[in-house]
Amino acid sequence: MSTPHEGRDEHAHPHLQHHFESMAQQYDSGKFGMWLFLVTEVLLFGGLFCAYAVYRANHPEIFAYAHQFLDKTLGGLNTLVLIVSSLTMAMAVRCAQLGQQRRLKQMLAATLLCACIFLGVKGVEYEHKWKHGLLWGTHYVPQGETVAPADAAGAATTAETTAAAAAAPADGGTTLPHAATGPQGLADHSQPGHGGASHGGHGPAGPAPRNVHLFFGIYFVMTGLHGIHVLAGMIAIVWLLRRSAAGEFGPEYFAPVDFVGLYWHLVDLIWIFLFPLLYLIH
């Protein structure tokens, strides 16, 4: 059976699939497919942003009250970490395009490290919420006891990721004024009616409104789904590292690095919106 290969040169690239005529066509198809996939991701998170918008618009008091339990500084730190990782990912794409094998591996590894730090910090935040009963639905049982910031730091040092452990306690130290807000807010909540206390310069929180747990429900779903995306990205980067170790990428074939890069930037992009929406409510 003679399969016509018109338009394909004799020395086709080993990664060129049989049904494409050129690497450019293959790359374009893959890239277009990737963009369409990113569209579905945007819509997936779009649904969550919708739930956020509906509750924020109709119950602003819940958000104004509950966001104080989030640690702005840890959130900001994570934002910076993700931006660094986006830079290293963009650099990795560039290295792959130029065939710079060693720097490609370095950049991918750096991205992976940033992802670990991000998840580590996230873990510290989650643990803090867990300990204080700042959870969703019926699990929202805020603990009245004040917890010294040192406790949080101590707990964080037991975190597995060394990078995270290194980052978190140091950060915990710098967030003293803010960390104080959380427990004080909690103390407030345990004595409804005792409002008007100032919160580290944040203005009064007043007594807890009803259904504060809704904020934490939305918070955990949004950041949780985002975290799962970070995890998936990390798996993809490990896969890229293995392939780049085999020297597979170069100026003629760098599509996988490019596509994972696009995905990674989108994950970063979503966090860029999550950060102000969840942490920086006034």
Partner: peptide, 21 residues
């Protein structure tokens, strides 16, 4: 379809965790 996906996710977390949305 992604909106169906997130709807199903929210329904599942609603049932499993009681997220309350």
């Amino acid at each position: 379809t992604p909106i169906l996906g997130i709807t199903m996710v929210l329904l599942i977390v609603e049932r499993v965790m009681g997220i309350g949305i």
